[in-house]
């Protein structure tokens, strides 16, 4: 990946080559310091009267965005993991094909469509956004849970049973920990999609980081669009990187002696 480095250049490369600190620092700095960039935007877009979005503080928008994603993801995680577990158990196994067809079908439903259909029926605001986010977030999580449980070798399950673990102990001591990295990568996908869908949710009246983008697009204020877009992009990248870190943690037993962190990360990237 890089020429073999030693000592401090290696340490420096490791920090500089890691997107997490960069994106996180940029996110915090821009959230708090966007008004300070006013001269820059004024110079770039001289035709605009108000080059920085000021209806709400960016900190408030980030918080609103995050809390909407957090709430919907929490519900989606609870529901998705339970659903995934249920269709992998003897009791729910018969329903798995049905569930998989539903998942495949919903894949052809763009998230914005869920939002657009929900809004006229239940009214504008946060509610349709939350419903769309939960519904759409559920799928990758359930899928990840199924894939994770499938990845546990049958022999491991059998030996757990053979040693005298009951169904419940086998599930939470052996199967779930082994499936955890794959389940988490489903949650990661779901949260990232939700960050994107929450952005579009401002078209149905929810206040999120999408608000400057939508207002900017409809008012031909490109500066607003850029401000919102940069923050949303940074938010998504930072969250994704954080999840990547967590996945490495949970899967540490797999890569305990793999010293090349880049290789470890690739395993997860391609595993998704």
């Amino acid at each position: 990946m890089s020429p073999p480095l030693k000592g401090w250049p290696k340490a420096l490369w490791r920090v500089a080559g890691d997107p997490l600190p960069w994106s996180f620092a940029a996110l915090v700095a821009l959230t708090l310091g966007m008004p300070a960039l006013r001269p820059l935007f004024a110079a770039l877009f001289p035709e605009l009267d108000r080059p920085v979005y000021q209806q709400d503080s960016f900190a408030a928008l980030v918080m609103a965005h995050l809390s909407m994603v957090a709430l919907s993801s929490a519900i989606a995680i609870a529901g998705g993991v339970l659903l995934g577990l249920w269709v992998c158990r003897p009791a729910g196994r018969a329903f798995r094909p049905l569930f998989e067809s539903l998942l495949a079908m919903s894949q052809s439903f763009p998230p914005v469509a869920v939002l657009a259909v929900a809004a006229p029926i239940i009214g504008f605001g946060e509610a349709p956004a939350l419903i769309a986010l939960v519904l759409y977030g559920l799928l990758p999580i359930a899928q990840g849970t199924m894939a994770g449980l499938d990845s546990v070798p049958a022999s491991t399950r059998e030996v757990a049973q053979g040693l005298g673990l009951d169904t419940w102990q086998s599930l939470y001591k052996v199967e779930l920990p082994l499936a955890a990295p794959v389940i988490l990568s489903g949650i990661r996908t779901s949260v990232i999609i939700n960050i994107g869908t929450a952005t579009i949710a401002s078209t149905v009246g929810a206040k999120t980081l999408g608000s400057p983008i939508i207002i900017g697009l409809s008012g031909f204020n490109t500066a607003y669009v850029i401000q919102g877009a940069v923050l949303v992009a940074l938010l998504a990248i930072t969250s994704d990187q954080l999840f990547g870190r967590l996945e490495e943690r949970l899967g540490a037993w797999r890569t305990r002696d793999a010293t090349d962190a880049g290789a470890a990360r690739f395993v997860q990237v391609s595993g998704r």
Binding site: P153, S155, T156, E158, V159, A160, L178, W253
Partner: peptide
């Protein structure tokens, strides 16, 4: 059973 039976995360 055959060696694959060890719990890999422990």
């Amino acid at each position: 059973i055959q060696s694959i039976g060890l719990f890999p995360h422990w």
